[in-house]
Amino acid sequence: MPRLPITKTPKVYVGGAFIRSESGRTFPLRDARGRLIGHVPQCTRKDLRNAVEAAAKAGPGWARRTAYNRGQILYRLAEMIEARTGELSHALAPASNRAAAREVAASVDRLIHYAGWADKCEQALGSVNSVAGPFFNFTTSEPMGVIGVIAPAECPLLALISLIAPAIVTGNTVVALASEPQPYPAIVLGEMLATSDLPGGVINLLTGLRRELLPTFASHAHLRALSGVANAEERTALERGSADSIRRVRLRADTARTDWFADTAQGLSMIRDLVEFKTTWHPIGA
């Protein structure tokens, strides 16, 4: 008996739920041969606002978890992706099967890398400082809060994960804008986030047009840092907006040709970019 084809409605993962854009708008998604795959939510500034609210709500609970537990959860997320490699590879079309499988594998490895850092980065980032007085002086790191992530067009899965993982590992929460030409891997990634142990709201993924959403990324005072890739014109606008709300900006130039597969695209420095340092002076008894 013939079956009706059941097609998936692509939805974005925000606040632990799968939502359409509040505007109801979508943009068509086509495969390499130009066939329609589906309609992806074209998120608006109000969707970004709602995502920031969700991220802010999830923040304190996520930051309160032990670093060890956050590491376990990142590892669990890597397990979820590993088990669904085929589906994600398919989502990465038009890349060839081999290139897609390589990108998924690298994404899993990247999560494992940061899962390992979770309960070790404090030892590497923090310090006990020598000072000219009878004080015990030490520096510790704290999460910043809500981080805005702006993913590049290329490597729609690996680059997105490479930007998100170092942000959340220390207890930040993230609102990320997926690759504009290839948003589908972010939609599928959302489905994996929902089945991992990650609390809702820690990672919020939006799809849409950069020119519509970047002005709000620039002006939203609740975002404590921006991390990602932008062209010269976008960087100027984002930096100008960030100056108004005293926000940290860690943007790579789109011309930098970042090799997202390389070891240089991961590591402690990416974690350090998105933490605040607190130095405490404690008097040593007489």
Partner: peptide, 9 residues
């Protein structure tokens, strides 16, 4: 201002 605000301000 036209900009979304943070509650802690």
């Amino acid at each position: 201002t036209g900009a979304y605000q943070a509650p802690y301000r």
